[in-house]
Design a protein around this nucleic acid. Sequence first.
DNA 1: CCTAAAAAGACTTTATATGTCTTTTAGGGG
DNA 2: CCCCTAAAAGACATATAAAGTCTTTTTAGG
Lengths: 138, 138
Amino acid sequence: MMELTRKGEYAIRGIVYLAGKPMDKVYLLSDIAAAVDVPPTFLAKIFQQFSKMGLVKSFRGTGGGFMLGRAPENITLLEVVEAVEGPIIPNRCVVNPLNCERSGDCNVHPVWARVQGEVRGVLEGVTLKELASERQKV
Amino acid sequence: MMELTRKGEYAIRGIVYLAGKPMDKVYLLSDIAAAVDVPPTFLAKIFQQFSKMGLVKSFRGTGGGFMLGRAPENITLLEVVEAVEGPIIPNRCVVNPLNCERSGDCNVHPVWARVQGEVRGVLEGVTLKELASERQKV
DNA sequence: CCTAAAAAGACTTTATATGTCTTTTAGGGG
DNA sequence: CCCCTAAAAGACATATAAAGTCTTTTTAGG
């Protein structure tokens, strides 16, 4: 349960790779895909989503490619995950209490809201800079 | 992302309903299913899993049905969810670091471990008794 | 205008979720 | 012992989502 999809996994690998590179250069999608071992066509879709969210900048044509949209220390893991997986929602009823049948007496609702908060909190506290750094205390 | 499946939702509804009833009686699956508005055949599967985990006791034949396996205050939401959804695993690599390619320098790993811990912590802190109670502070 | 590379969208395949149906097993009562 | 009730077990069916591919279009450089 609560498992990150492969898409999410790939997304993290790809953007962390970028975050570990000099920021003012452009990198070919095909090179990134090869480096992090992800199907290039699939990674293309993922980076398109990143691009829409401003997490990366894209350049077409000759000499084109991708670069990080912001400094790695200003991009959180939460943003990366939500960019490709959508918002973190443990339960429908967290979004819209009306989906909660008998929402009036549903004691489970606040629990899911708490779960959501905790998860977002953890992911929000981690930046790409930390993830891309050589090695750090575990 | 991280969404509870309908199975999990149904499971909670079903067992919380049981938890709200006098404990020393037996309840027909068909009645429970009707009360919580879940397809009876599906709820049957769910309760079979509960039964294997000892969360409920089942009785066959005439006068048979289900009752809670333990007192509601001794069953946590975590147990219920994991009984039907399996363990809470934000990422494969949390289970087995060997699945982590380049696990040596993977800084994401500990983050997922932390997420897992937080989620389990929240769910473990909630009992069926609380969930079944008439009304409580939100 | 030719080539490189991303963008966009249709399409395919595979896996998982969501259920249903049928048969078997266990228990109670006449 | 037979019959009825109800859960257990497992095969089966369908729907949805994940995972991945392919083709065409757009943009930029030389």
